Amino acid sequence: MKTFIRRLEILHYLQQRHAARLEPVSTDTIIQHLIDGEYVGDSEREPKSLLRLIQRDLKFLLGDYDEEDDSYLNNFGLEVTRGRGKTQLWSLDPYQQVSYDFEKMPAYMALALTVTRKHLKQVLPSSTQQELAQVFFNAENRLQQAQNKLSAKQYSRLGNAVEFYQRGQSLRSPDFDMTVLDRIYQAILKGKRIRFSYQGGQGKRDYDVHPFGVTIMLPKLYLVAVKDDAMKAGNQEDYRSFLVHRIRDLEVLPLANSVPEDFQLKDYLDSGNMDVAIDRDHSFYE
């Protein structure tokens, strides 16, 4: 199990660097990352032994070498290039091995991708949008080539004819910083607390919170969280909701996020908990 977790962390670390568009890293850098994250025990930290251990991990992740194609038969998208001297540089593109036969894609699947794209782009992390860009592009091309019961023109027309709409208040979403949403997602994924400034109804205030989730209530997005002070006082259900477009200067802290394992955002919403005071000290709502 320990070996599996260590190898999984290597892939996760390289994927994070890929998403951030960072340069390939050396084996020594990977080793230091694993040491910092305590993925190797004290008994394994003898330099030469540890180097051999991680080299075995990387060789396993690369897979067997195919002499005919002059490439490694790996399923993870791991890449190795030669650096200075004998240094090996590692990177990961999880989609380089993935190929889609868009010519054989069912028209209904292409339609589903096309219709959902414009709505997903306002809530997906920007790195995910970049990874999916080619998928969406090819799906739209597939619609144009559709020759089944409906013509390509009809499919394209339907793709442009599906919109979210709400009577009364306009669905025009308030402008928010996508970097803020990305960092909220990052904190939730990594189990970290966040700190930010919030422009509420009574001015600007700073918050240190445990992020529980993101609620999409079009046209607005909310962060559901518990203040650190309340968490320390044992009030794990003292939920606060923050409008994402009013959050500024958000920072992911190197501190653990204490979200109960049994917390389910859907259950929280089904219980009608979105009418929660953001700042009970001043008794105002958002």
Rank of each mutant, 00 (worst) to 15 (best):
D228M: 06
H33G: 03
Y155P: 00
E103D: 15
H282C: 08
H119I: 05
H282A: 12
Q169G: 10
L58G: 02
Q186I: 05
Y285H: 11
K220D: 11
M217L: 14
K2T: 11
Q236H: 15
M217N: 15
Q55M: 04
A19V: 07
G234H: 04
Q130R: 15
T3N: 14
N273R: 09
K2W: 08
Q122I: 12
D281T: 13
I247A: 01
E46N: 13
F76N: 14
L181Y: 02
Q96L: 12
E44R: 07
L269V: 13
L120Q: 12
P211M: 06
R21P: 00
S127G: 03
Q134V: 12
Y155N: 04
A230H: 14
I188D: 05
A233T: 02
D101S: 12
D101C: 07
M231C: 03
E140A: 10
T29S: 14
M178P: 14
Q55V: 01
G168P: 02
I184C: 05
V276Y: 06
D270C: 09
V40S: 01
Y100W: 14
V135N: 04
K2M: 09
E9V: 08
R17T: 08
L61D: 01
Q236A: 15
N75E: 13
F196P: 02
V180S: 06
Q130N: 13
V25K: 04
I184M: 03
D206S: 02
A112H: 09
V135Q: 05
A110F: 03
Y95W: 09
P254I: 00
S151T: 09
H119N: 10
N138T: 03
S151M: 00
R6M: 03
G41M: 05
S91E: 07
Q32M: 09
D228E: 14
R157S: 10
I194L: 07
P174R: 05
G200R: 00
R82M: 07
L111I: 02
R183L: 11
Y165L: 11
D275R: 09
L124M: 10
A152G: 15
F212V: 01
Q264W: 05
V98R: 06
K104L: 09
D57H: 06
G37A: 13
D36G: 02
L22G: 08
L250T: 01
K266W: 09
Y165P: 01
A225K: 03
V25N: 04
R52M: 08
G37P: 00
N148C: 08
I54V: 13
G203D: 00
D262N: 15
Y268F: 15
K232V: 07
L218Q: 13
L14W: 02
L51N: 09
Q130D: 11
G41I: 02
L53D: 06
M1P: 05
M1E: 09
I247L: 02
E237W: 07
H18F: 15
Y222H: 10
E46T: 12
Q147P: 03
R84M: 12
T3S: 13
K104T: 07
R52T: 08
T114Q: 05
D182K: 05
N148K: 11
L78E: 00
Q129I: 09
K121M: 14
T29K: 12
Y268V: 02
Y207E: 00
T179K: 10
M231L: 10
Q199L: 06
D64R: 10
K220A: 09
